[in-house]
Amino acid sequence: MENLRNFEQVCAILKEHDHNPNRLIAILQAVQEVYRYLPEEAMTFIATSLGIPPAKVFGVASFYAHFTLEPKGRYVLKICDGTACHVKKSTEIEEALRKHLGLSSQNPTTPDMLFTLETVSCLGTCGLAPALVINDEVHGLLSPQSALALVQEIQDREAAVHA
C-alpha cells in the first residue's frame, strides 16, 4: 500500500499549492520528499492536475540538479569533492565507500535501495574537510575508516530492525 499512501500525499501537496502551475518547482520538491525521487507517473499526474503538458514538467524536473528522476536509496551519501575536501583526500573516502557498497558512477544506488552515493562540489563546510552528508546530517573531519564506520552503523541498525 505504500504507493497509494504516497499518491494521497501527492494529492494533498497539489491541494496545498492550489493547483497553481506557477508553483511547479515547490510542488516537485514536496513530491520528491515523498518518493525520494520523481517517478514518471507522479509527474504525469502533476501535469494533468495543473493543466500543463507533461513535457513541461519533465523539462523543469530534468533541468535542476536537485531533482532526481531515478529512485534513490533511503540513505543518500553526499561526499564533498570541493577544493578543500579534495586536497584532504575525499577521493579516498569515495573509493572506500564505493568498494564497501559495491557501487560505481553508473550505478550509484545499492540493489536493496538503502544507499545512494553522490559527489557534490563544496558543501560550504570547508573547515570540516573532508566532509560527508548522510541525508541531512553533516559529518566532518573523516577518514576512510570513520566514513565506513558510519555506513556500517546504519547497516547494522537496519539489519537489526529487519531481524
Binding site: 514518471e40 500543463i52 530534468s62
Partner: peptide, 25 residues
C-alpha cells in the same frame, strides 16, 4: 505550446545536455 497549445515537445536537461524532446524522453 503557444500556437497549437499541445506542448508535446519541450526543452529538457541543461547546459550542454539540453535537448528538445517529448516528455520523459
Amino acid at each position: 505550446n503557444e500556437i497549437q497549445t499541445v506542448g508535446a515537445i519541450d526543452f529538457a536537461y541543461r547546459g550542454s545536455k539540453s535537448t528538445v524532446m517529448p516528455c520523459f524522453g
